[in-house]
């Protein structure tokens, strides 16, 4: 492990924190936040791989002829736009499920819900 890889280490640290929130917390809203952090970490992983030192955003200036300017890699950006959208879609759906769960169970804590389900079975 070397600090040259700081961008990976940073993404991985975020990834693990996010995952940790998801699997260790009982509160469902918190889980969704964790899931978001988890996804942002992957976005970082992609975006950092697209960066070129000395490069600039992949938008060709009006006065440039394309070849002289060094651009960062646009593909990871494109991919991550889609990933962000997927992320927000998942968040929206997850949160609406939480709303319904709250209405049905009166709580949004997973252990509480499991307990209620077990009681129901008897």
């Amino acid at each position: 492990m070397s600090l040259d890889q700081w961008h990976h280490i940073g993404s991985i640290a975020l990834l693990c924190t996010g995952l940790y929130i998801v699997i260790s917390r009982d509160n469902l809203v918190k889980k969704m936040m964790g899931l978001n952090i988890f996804q942002v970490a992957v976005i970082f992983f992609y975006v950092t791989m697209g960066k070129v030192t000395g490069g600039t955003a992949p938008i060709i200036p009006a006065d440039a002829h394309g070849h002289e300017v060094l651009y960062s890699n646009p593909i990871p950006h494109v991919l991550m736009l889609t990933a962000i959208v997927v992320g927000v879609a998942t968040t929206a759906l997850g949160l609406s499920l939480i709303v319904r769960i709250q209405e049905a169970y009166g709580t949004a804590e997973e252990d509480e819900i499991v307990r209620l389900d077990l009681e129901e079975i008897g």
Partner: peptide
């Protein structure tokens, strides 16, 4: 800062 302006745009708007 990482040159991903479009991603930044989206993340700001969405996140």
């Amino acid at each position: 800062l990482m040159d991903a302006v479009d991603v930044a745009f989206t993340e700001a708007a969405v996140g």
